[in-house]
Simulated assay, not measured.
Amino acid sequence: MRYKVPMASETVFPPRVKICGLSTEDTLDAALGAGADWIGLVHFPRSPRHVDLARAAALSARARGRAERVVLLVDPDDVLLIRAVEVVDPDLIQLHGRETPERVAAIRTLTGRPVMKAIGVATAADLTPLAAYAAVADRILLDAKAPPGAILPGGNGRRFDWTILAGLDLPRDTMLSGGLDAANVAEALACTGLGAVDVSSGVESEPGVKDPERIAAFVAAARAAR
Rank of each mutant, 00 (worst) to 15 (best):
M1L: 15
R2H: 12
Y3G: 09
V5G: 11
P6N: 02
E10M: 13
E10Y: 13
T11W: 15
T11F: 14
R16H: 13
C20A: 08
C20S: 12
C20E: 02
L22A: 08
L22C: 05
T24P: 06
L28R: 03
L28H: 03
A30M: 15
A30T: 08
L32V: 11
G33D: 10
G33P: 04
A34Y: 07
G35W: 02
D37P: 03
D37R: 06
D37L: 07
G40D: 00
L41P: 03
V42E: 01
V42P: 11
H43L: 05
P45G: 06
R49F: 09
R49H: 13
D52S: 09
L53V: 07
A56R: 00
R62Y: 06
A63N: 02
R64E: 12
R66S: 05
A67Y: 03
E68Y: 14
R69T: 13
L72T: 02
L72V: 14
L73E: 01
P76Y: 11
P76C: 12
P76A: 09
D77G: 12
D78G: 14
D78I: 13
L81M: 12
L81A: 13
I82S: 15
A84Q: 02
V88S: 03
V88F: 04
I93W: 00
H96K: 12
R98C: 10
E99H: 07
E99D: 10
P101H: 03
E102F: 09
I107F: 00
V115A: 02
K117L: 04
A118P: 01
G120L: 07
G120Q: 02
V121D: 01
V121C: 09
A122W: 07
A124V: 12
A125Q: 15
D126F: 09
T128M: 08
P129C: 05
A132I: 11
A132Q: 14
Y133I: 12
V136Y: 00
L141D: 00
L141S: 04
P147L: 11
P148T: 06
I151R: 14
L152M: 08
P153V: 05
G157W: 10
R158N: 11
R158Y: 06
F160N: 00
D161C: 06
T163M: 14
T163I: 15
A166V: 07
L168Q: 11
D169V: 08
P171G: 07
D173A: 11
G178E: 07
G178F: 07
G178D: 01
D181Q: 03
D181C: 05
N184M: 03
N184L: 05
V185F: 03
E187Y: 11
L189Y: 00
A190W: 08
C191L: 15
A196D: 05
V199N: 00
S200P: 04
V203W: 02
P207Q: 09
V209P: 04
I215T: 06
A217Q: 06
R223S: 10
A224Y: 14
